Simulated scan of single mutants.
Amino acid sequence: MDCPPHTGRRNPLQEEQRLRTRQAIMTAALSAFGEHGFAACTVEQILMRAGVSRAAFYAHFDSKLSLVCAIAEDFEPQWRPTFEHLAALDAPTLGDLAAWARLHLAFHREHQLVCGLLSQLVVLEDRLYWQVARQRDALIAMLGGTHPAFARATQSPKAHLRAAMLLWSIDQTCFHVVRGRLPDPDDGAAGIIAAQLHAFLNETAG
């Protein structure tokens, strides 16, 4: 996550410059991670792409991982509407859910760099995992406002585990399909995701 903000007051121009620098670092980091991979990429490579000093980098982030955590936080408003669409589906059919799954796959394709980075690092870095887990729990709560199966997941540890595993499976499936690791010549992934969702949403309380 970002380093604690400076306690002194900034005027609007200073704040605008701060935000521009932060965004430049994050954009440069994504480009560098995409080319070199997270582990091999150095802070120096990010600095060169961003055109900022080492001091400017550490004024915003305490490490590469801190930077990725900020990317994950800023990314939430982009992926959340896809799940708001799922939450808005009333008693969805398999066809409705397959259409949603294609939408989610398309989102992964459009944002392949960020989705790929987070999908890989979340299994390796505890700090990022727990940040994403909090986002997932908030997502389960949002979906629970419409779908009883997700509402049960906010009340029962067993149901929560099933919901978390389902969402994890969907994202991992999208990641591997988009990367070409799981061949999907007949667009079958969307149907499989839909079937998993449909089964979960239509479970009775146990």
Rank of each mutant, 00 (worst) to 15 (best):
P4Q: 03
S31N: 15
A24S: 15
I25R: 07
N11I: 06
P5Y: 00
R9Y: 07
I25A: 09
E16S: 14
R10M: 12
T27M: 12
R22L: 11
L30R: 13
Q17H: 10
R10N: 00
M26P: 00
Q23G: 03
T21A: 11
P4D: 03
R20P: 01
M1I: 07
R9Q: 09
A29V: 07
R9V: 08
G8Y: 05
I25Y: 01
N11Q: 04
H6V: 12
A28K: 03
C3K: 11
C3D: 04
R10Y: 08
R18F: 08
A29I: 09
E15C: 00
G8K: 14
M26F: 00
A29C: 10
A29S: 15
T27V: 15
S31Y: 13
I25E: 02
C3F: 03
A24I: 06
A29T: 13
M1Y: 03
T27I: 14
M1V: 03
L30N: 11
Q17C: 06
R20G: 02
N11W: 04
T21D: 02
G8I: 02
L19Y: 04
T21Q: 08
Q14D: 12
D2T: 12
H6E: 13
G8F: 12
Q14I: 01
R18E: 09
Q23L: 15
R18D: 07
I25K: 07
R9A: 15
R22D: 04
N11L: 08
R10P: 00
Q17P: 00
T21G: 04
L13P: 00
Q23D: 15
A29W: 05
Q14G: 08
S31P: 05
N11M: 04
E16M: 08
Q14T: 06
H6I: 07
R22P: 02
T7L: 11
R9P: 04
M26I: 11
L19K: 11
E15G: 02
T7H: 14
S31Q: 15
T27C: 09
Q14P: 00
R9W: 01
A29Q: 05
P4K: 05
E15I: 07
A24Y: 02
S31V: 15
Q17I: 03
P5H: 04
E15K: 09
R18C: 06
P12N: 01
P12C: 01
H6Q: 13
A28R: 03
T27Q: 14
G8H: 10
R10W: 06
T21V: 13
R18L: 03
M1H: 05
A29H: 05
I25S: 04
P4Y: 01
I25G: 02
R22Y: 05
H6N: 05
A29N: 08
L13Q: 13
M1N: 03
L19C: 05
R9S: 14
L13Y: 04
E16P: 01
R22M: 11
T21W: 08
A28V: 09
M1L: 10
I25C: 07
R10Q: 12
N11S: 11
L19A: 10
R10E: 12
M26G: 05
R10F: 12
R18G: 01
L13N: 05
R22H: 07
C3A: 12
L19H: 01
A28Q: 11
N11A: 01
T21H: 09
R20V: 08
